[in-house]
């Protein structure tokens, strides 16, 4: 399966300043969002993991969109990510 993740609002700075990442999981056809986030923390994130993940979910104040819609419409962290999904993470924690 293939998943696209996008990072913005300053979060990309933790991920090598790269905003878009494409992930492939050859052995899977779905993955719980929680596992995807922990995978990102362990494999993509370059610094300050505590600014991305707290208590095995995204840090409060980071907005998550699943296929361009608020993750709160889709069970939040319990969502099961499917092939072709795009998951977007936007930090709201930076000054305005």
């Amino acid at each position: 399966m293939k998943v696209t993740v996008e990072l913005s609002g300053g979060l990309e700075l933790l991920f090598d300043k790269k905003k878009t990442h494409t992930l492939e999981f050859a052995d899977k056809d779905e993955i719980p969002l929680r596992d995807l986030i922990l995978y990102m923390r362990d494999n993509l994130l370059k610094e300050r993991a505590e600014l991305f993940v707290v208590d095995n979910t995204v840090r409060p104040g980071i907005l998550v969109l699943i296929n361009d819609a608020d993750w709160e419409l889709y069970d939040g962290i319990e969502y099961i990510v499917k092939n072709g999904d795009t998951i977007i993470f936007i930090s709201t924690l930076h000054g305005g």
Binding site: S8, G9, L63, I88, I90, T92, H94, G95, G96
Partner: peptide, 24 residues
């Protein structure tokens, strides 16, 4: 709400800058 401001900016593809002040 901040959440709605950020969502509005995202959906409208507004051009904004987000880096924390280096001294703050």
């Amino acid at each position: 709400y901040q959440k709605e401001i950020v969502m509005y900016a995202y959906f409208k593809k507004l051009d904004y800058f987000s880096t924390e002040c280096i001294y703050a």
